[in-house]
């Protein structure tokens, strides 16, 4: 394979000249910075990179990247990105959605993009609220949430985005958060390297309409005791000194324990590459909300045939078997007759 050398770039090369217009203090700034700083290290080219978004605060993202970009319509970014990725395998396509965008109005496109395994990096900035419409509950808001549209509290059961993605046959599922640049970059880098649809949920703070939603787990003081880092092949342990861990009971349920109570050998080792999604699913159910210890990192990363490549393969096979299409022949593929 011949490779054209990728020019060295810096964050500045990846930043557009547009003034960033999120609310001061929004978690989106951290995510944007993490990505702009990460891009030079991915070994990709600006002109081959496309950011596609829907509608919502998160969806302004493409305007701030000095790449190709489409700010489309609410919920539909995965469908537009699918057509693009299916016809342009040479491109790196990133899809930026909010929780309402990806999981409410665009829920159908989200799950189908995942099951098809089309090569997209789908990042969902989950702030558990509708920001751009000024504060209604979202499909990830906790039951009972009081918002402008739920003055008596929300009666909706929220989605667990990780569980949903795994249930939708996703081949790559991860979670990170806006307070940890290094973790975001490591997670996004793995997503980018995945040949297929890669889904990353990013816990993101909306400091105007849902401030501190994740503080109890992502706040600096709480992280070590509340975030459970998932690293493939490593025991699932957390806490200041790794004093807590996860075990799997004989009935399959996962349980958080003191390592000293069960012994190091009893601690579950993470296997993100397991064909069976059972463990990844169980890990996604370990936390019942942002007040429980919550796994972050790559839940699942398995090899599965990529959609666009298969589509191209069928075209290539047909062309090899029948020869390149010829219009004159096509027009005579039904029984023809000649009039003198």
């Amino acid at each position: 394979m011949t490779s054209v050398e990728v020019p060295l770039t810096t964050r500045k090369d990846w930043s557009s000249d547009q003034e960033v217009r999120w609310c001061p203090g929004c978690g989106d700034y951290n995510i944007l910075a993490a990505i702009q700083m990460m891009m030079p290290d991915l070994g990709v080219r600006r002109e081959k990179t496309v950011f596609v978004s829907g509608i919502g605060c998160a969806s302004r993202f493409p305007y701030y990247m000095n790449t190709y970009g489409v700010h489309s319509i609410h919920g539909r970014a995965p469908s537009i990105a699918t057509g693009l990725a299916a016809t342009r395998p040479d491109l790196d396509v990133w899809v930026i959605c909010g929780d309402g965008d990806a999981l409410s109005i665009g829920g159908n496109h989200f799950i189908h993009a995942l099951r098809r395994n089309i090569r997209l990096n789908i990042l969902v900035f989950n702030n558990q609220i509708y920001g751009l419409t000024k504060g209604q509950y979202s499909p990830t808001s906790e039951t009972g949430k009081v918002t402008k549209s739920t003055p008596f509290g929300s009666i909706d059961q929220p989605f667990n985005p990780i569980s949903l993605a795994i249930g939708a046959e996703a081949s790559f599922v991860a979670r990170t958060h806006d307070m940890d640049r290094a973790h975001m970059q490591a997670t996004f880098t793995q997503a980018h390297a995945h040949d297929g649809a890669a889904f990353v949920e990013v816990y993101q703070n909306c400091n105007v309409f849902n401030d501190g939603a994740f503080e109890s787990i992502t706040g600096k003081a709480n992280r070590s005791s509340m975030l459970i880092p998932l690293v493939h092949g490593e025991p699932i342990r957390f806490g200041e000194d790794g004093e807590r861990g996860v075990i799997q009971r004989t009935d399959g349920h996962l349980e958080i324990v003191e390592v000293s109570d069960v012994g190091e050998d009893a601690i579950l080792r993470h296997n993100a590459h397991a064909e069976d999604p059972g463990l990844a699913f169980a890990l996604s159910r370990l936390s019942r909300g942002v007040h429980d210890p919550t796994p972050i990192g790559v839940f699942r990363s398995v090899d599965r045939q990529e959609y666009g490549a298969q589509m191209t393969h069928q075209v290539d096979e047909a062309t090899a078997a029948r020869g390149k299409g010829d219009l004159a022949q096509l027009f005579r593929s039904a029984t023809s007759w000649t009039v003198d």
């Binding site: 469908s79 699918t82 057509g83 342009r88 159908n108 075209v315 078997a321 299409g325």
Partner: peptide
């Protein structure tokens, strides 16, 4: 008619049908 390089995509719904077509058009 794939030998003409035709790519057909049976989408999850009507919106994704046109969305994917627009994405492909954006890609040339």
């Amino acid at each position: 008619r794939k030998e003409f390089g035709v790519r057909t995509f049976q989408a999850e719904d009507e919106i994704a049908g046109i969305g994917s077509a627009l994405g492909a058009a954006y890609g040339g």
